[in-house]
């Protein structure tokens, strides 16, 4: 974990609420974490766990009716949730770049790929049209696109899914960002293409000393790329630990169940373990631990509110039984 002074991003008590006409949905609650320069942090969780909302909050991109009900997102000391728009625009796409799951929604279908890439650079840097074009060609080559000049003249629909995601990644890397937010960047891709894209992110990280926030539902993807992992459930962080610790000694019962239910290609005895029940409905307020109804070791005290608490310098969990009784896996 990074020390206070060196954190590039510090999220503090973030709470994001969606006001619907008849009810309120709390998509993220009391989320706090830090990312140091060059560090890769992973967020894992299932659909509805709030991981994408956290990502979007980092660039103040949560769409209405969502609003930031509490907390701060400090980037280099500036609160991105309250700073003037002009200041935010200087960060968006320049110092913090973002890649989404579906590259088709990130590209303009009417414009040639090359024009979009060059435009992204010219928005943030004073460069001539031709210099921007050349820079874009080079970045496309860097991300492993064969014949980049021809691809620059293509429209997005003429590229394959993997090539589109690489083009989007090239666009994100053009401005040499300090932080790359990748929200399920490989979920829509085939495994062999996924391997290519993950390797690219890894390489860009080394070359640019770029920090990465990687959101994924796939524990294998996170295991390969990230140094630390946050596990989210029902809008809250339930466990935070260095990647090796988390996989070796998961402490929260949800993390343990999630790891058990992830199929492992190399397992000696492949087994099917599921978590009983369904994820909770966030529209109705949850008292105590949100996972308790599905948890094998739930006790009476689980109905009290739970706080993410450090077990040691690096490992924190929100399970009250682990905190107070030292419950072991």
């Amino acid at each position: 974990m990074t020390t206070e002074g060196s954190a590039l991003v510090r999220v503090d008590g973030l709470r994001v609420v969606f006001d619907l006409h008849d009810r309120q949905v709390c998509a993220a609650d009391d989320v706090s974490f830090k990312i140091g320069p060059g560090e890769a942090l992973g967020i894992v969780g299932e659909s509805g766990s709030g991981k994408s909302v956290v990502c979007a909050s980092l660039l103040r991109l949560v769409p209405p009716p969502g609003r930031y009900a509490a907390g701060r997102v400090l980037f280099d000391g500036v609160d991105l949730l309250t700073c003037p728009l002009s200041q935010l625009r200087a960060v968006r796409g320049k110092r913090i770049a973002m890649v989404f799951q579906d590259p088709m929604t990130a590209l303009n279908p009417y414009l040639r790929v090359g024009d979009q890439l060059a435009e992204a650079l010219r928005t943030h840097e004073k460069v001539s049209r031709s210099a921007a074009w050349d820079a874009a060609v080079n970045t496309l080559r860097d991300v492993g696109i064969a014949d980049p000049l021809a691809r620059m003249r293509c429209h997005p629909h003429e590229l394959s899914g993997g090539m589109r995601q690489r083009a989007v990644l090239a666009m994100a890397l053009l401005t040499r960002p300090q932080l790359l937010i990748a929200d399920e960047p490989t979920t829509a891709l085939d495994v062999t293409v996924q391997a290519q894209v993950l390797e690219l992110i890894q390489r860009a990280r080394r070359e640019l000393n770029m920090a990465v926030l990687l959101v994924s539902h796939d524990l294998g993807v996170v295991a390969g790329l990230c140094e630390r992992v946050l596990v989210m459930y029902a809008g809250r962080v339930v466990e935070s630990a260095p990647t090796t610790d988390l996989f070796k000694t998961p402490r929260h019962p949800y993390t343990r169940a999630l790891l058990r239910s992830t199929p492992d290609l190399q397992a000696v005895e492949p087994q099917l373990v599921s978590i009983r029940g369904q994820p909770p409905d966030l529209a109705s307020p949850i008292a105590g631990c949100a996972f308790a109804p599905r948890c094998d070791v739930a006790a009476e005290k689980c109905s009290q509110s739970q706080m993410l608490t450090a077990l040691d310098a690096l490992h924190a969990t929100a399970c009250v039984r682990v905190q107070t009784e030292g419950l072991q896996p």
Partner: peptide, 15 residues
């Protein structure tokens, strides 16, 4: 190639 591309949920084996 296909099998080697599937990520394994274990950081030590995966790396």
């Amino acid at each position: 190639a296909l099998i080697s591309a599937v990520p394994v949920p274990d950081p030590e084996r995966e790396r």
